[in-house]
Amino acid sequence: MNGKFSPRSPEDVAAFVRAQMLGLVISNGPQGYATTPLPLLPHTDEAGAVIEFFGHFARANPQVGMVRDRPRALILFQGPHAYIPPAWVSAPGWAPTWNYALAQFEVDISLLPEENDRAIAELVNALEGQASGAWTVDTMGDRYARMLPHIVAFRARVIRSDAKFKLGQDESDTAFAEIVDALGETPLSRMMRDARP
């Protein structure tokens, strides 16, 4: 990865995706585009690069039919972002900008209804963890088994990916400190500090 706004490593992109979790799955069909926000679990290779996403659609979602006919889709994750006005920076002539983080993945989606139970189990584990008192599907009783046929699991194999973390890496030390101070303790300011060379 190179370029001043590129993530430092594939692991940084995977960590970003895990932190955001809710991705926009975008498909194109004969009637145009469809987008569904979905929590997605990334799977990585030995180098830490995201190679696949695991998730599920509601079976009634019209996008399921689109994916069945045309498996190629785009998955987008947007992180914290904000307008950065010149009033925050003491440097004369400094122009406004927008700081943000974005990762996009071109994918091929395979619908796998036989993995419905696993998709829910992995998602619940990721969100609830193993701590005492964590919610489990067992608390739903018979309703869980009745719910499963109303979803369809999928795996989205990554064909191509790109990420841009525009987080003030090109700012002077003074301007960077002023921007972070003006933002306060926010997800964006934390991400900016983490990305600073």
Rank of each mutant, 00 (worst) to 15 (best):
G48Q: 07
R118Q: 14
P85V: 03
E52V: 08
N99E: 05
A58M: 12
A58D: 11
E46D: 15
R59A: 13
W88S: 06
I51V: 15
M66I: 06
P85W: 10
V107R: 05
P71W: 13
H56R: 13
Y83V: 01
N116G: 07
G93T: 06
A82R: 10
D69V: 01
D69Q: 15
E52K: 15
R68L: 11
D69S: 14
A87N: 09
A101L: 00
R59N: 00
W94G: 00
Q104M: 12
W94Q: 04
P71I: 12
E106R: 13
F105T: 04
Q78G: 12
H56T: 10
R72V: 12
F53N: 01
V89S: 01
L74T: 13
A87I: 04
I109H: 07
V107G: 05
A103P: 01
R118G: 05
D117M: 11
R70C: 04
D117L: 14
G93K: 09
A103C: 11
I109M: 03
R72A: 13
A95F: 05
A60W: 06
V50K: 02
Y100V: 09
G55V: 10
P80C: 08
N116F: 09
R68S: 15
G79K: 07
G48T: 03
Y83L: 06
E106D: 15
Q63L: 06
Y100P: 03
L74Y: 08
P113W: 12
L74N: 12
D108S: 13
R72P: 01
A101G: 07
I75K: 01
G65W: 00
A87R: 14
R118K: 15
R70L: 02
G79T: 00
A91Y: 00
F77I: 07
F54T: 07
P85H: 04
R59S: 08
P85G: 02
F77N: 07
P86C: 03
E114V: 04
F77L: 07
Q63Y: 03
A49F: 01
L76V: 14
I75Y: 03
L111Y: 12
L112K: 14
G93H: 07
L111C: 06
P96R: 05
V64M: 11
A73W: 01
A60C: 09
W88T: 08
G48F: 02
L74H: 09
Q78L: 08
N116H: 09
P71T: 13
G48C: 03
F57T: 11
V64S: 08
A103D: 06
Q104R: 14
R70N: 15
E46L: 08
G79I: 05
A49G: 02
A82G: 02
I51A: 02
L74F: 11
Q104F: 02
G48M: 04
V89M: 05
A101I: 00
L74C: 14
R72S: 14
H56I: 09
P92K: 09
W88Q: 02
G55Q: 04
W88L: 03
A82Y: 02
P86L: 06
N61A: 13
P92V: 11
P71A: 13
R72C: 04
P92E: 14
W98I: 03
F105I: 04
Q78E: 14
E46A: 15
Q78T: 12
F57V: 10
A60N: 08
E115L: 14
N116Y: 07
D108C: 04
G79M: 11
I84A: 06
F77P: 11
P86N: 08
V64F: 07
D117Y: 10
H56D: 03
I84Y: 10
D117I: 05
L74K: 06
